[in-house]
Amino acid sequence: MRHASLYLAVPVLLALLSASAVAARDALDATLEPLRAEHRLPALAAAVVKDGVIVAAGAVGERALGSGVPVTVDDRFHIGSDTKAMTATLAAMQVEEGLLRWDSTVGETIGAAFPGMAPELAAVSLEQLLSHSSGIPSDTAEMLNLYFSVDAFNHGPSARRLRAIDAWKTNVPMKPEGSPFQYSNFGYLIAGAMIEAASGQPWERLIRERLFDPLGLTTAGLGATVTPGRLDAAAAHVRGADGSVALRVWGIAADIPPMLGPAGTAHMSVLDFARWGGWNAGMGRRGPALLKPATLAILHAVHTRTPPRPDAPPGTPGTGGYGLGWGIVPFPWSDRPLLAHNGSNGMNLAKILVDTERDLAVVVLTNIGGKAAEDGASAVQQALYERYR
Rank of each mutant, 00 (worst) to 15 (best):
L338V: 12
P332M: 11
D151C: 01
G58K: 07
A234N: 06
V363N: 02
L271R: 03
N185G: 09
L8W: 12
F114N: 01
I298N: 04
H78Q: 15
I190H: 00
R285Y: 10
R286G: 15
S184I: 12
L162K: 14
A224C: 08
V238P: 09
D311F: 13
E204S: 13
T227M: 09
Y183I: 09
T366H: 12
P115W: 02
W333I: 11
K50E: 05
P137I: 04
P180N: 03
D375K: 11
D139R: 10
M194S: 01
G223W: 01
A123L: 11
G321S: 14
G261R: 00
A56N: 07
D232P: 01
M1A: 14
V49P: 01
R309G: 01
S138N: 08
L231F: 05
L99C: 05
G58M: 03
A224E: 13
H155I: 01
E120N: 08
P119F: 06
E357T: 10
S344G: 10
W102D: 06
R230I: 06
G223T: 14
R358W: 01
H267E: 06
N342K: 02
A197L: 08
P228F: 09
A56C: 12
L206V: 07
L8I: 13
A4Y: 13
G68T: 08
D74L: 14
G68I: 02
A164K: 00
R208D: 09
P34W: 05
V380Y: 01
L41M: 10
P293M: 10
G192M: 07
H132C: 04
G200P: 14
A233E: 01
M268A: 05
A152S: 13
G107P: 10
L41K: 05
A234E: 04
S184D: 05
V95F: 02
V73F: 04
V245K: 04
G111V: 11
D26E: 10
V226D: 02
Y147F: 14
A91L: 14
T31K: 00
A224M: 02
A198L: 07
A312E: 03
A236Y: 00
A379F: 05
R389K: 15
V124N: 06
G325K: 03
A281M: 08
G111A: 02
L291M: 12
H3G: 08
S149E: 02
S158T: 15
I79T: 07
G343C: 06
A24E: 12
Q381Y: 04
T170P: 10
P119H: 03
G178I: 07
A122K: 03
A47Q: 03
L189S: 01
G68D: 08
V12I: 13
V364C: 08
P262H: 15
P115Q: 04
P137Q: 11
P307G: 11
M268H: 15
D51K: 11
T316C: 09
A37T: 15
V172P: 03
S133V: 07
W333Y: 06
G223C: 13
T356Y: 03
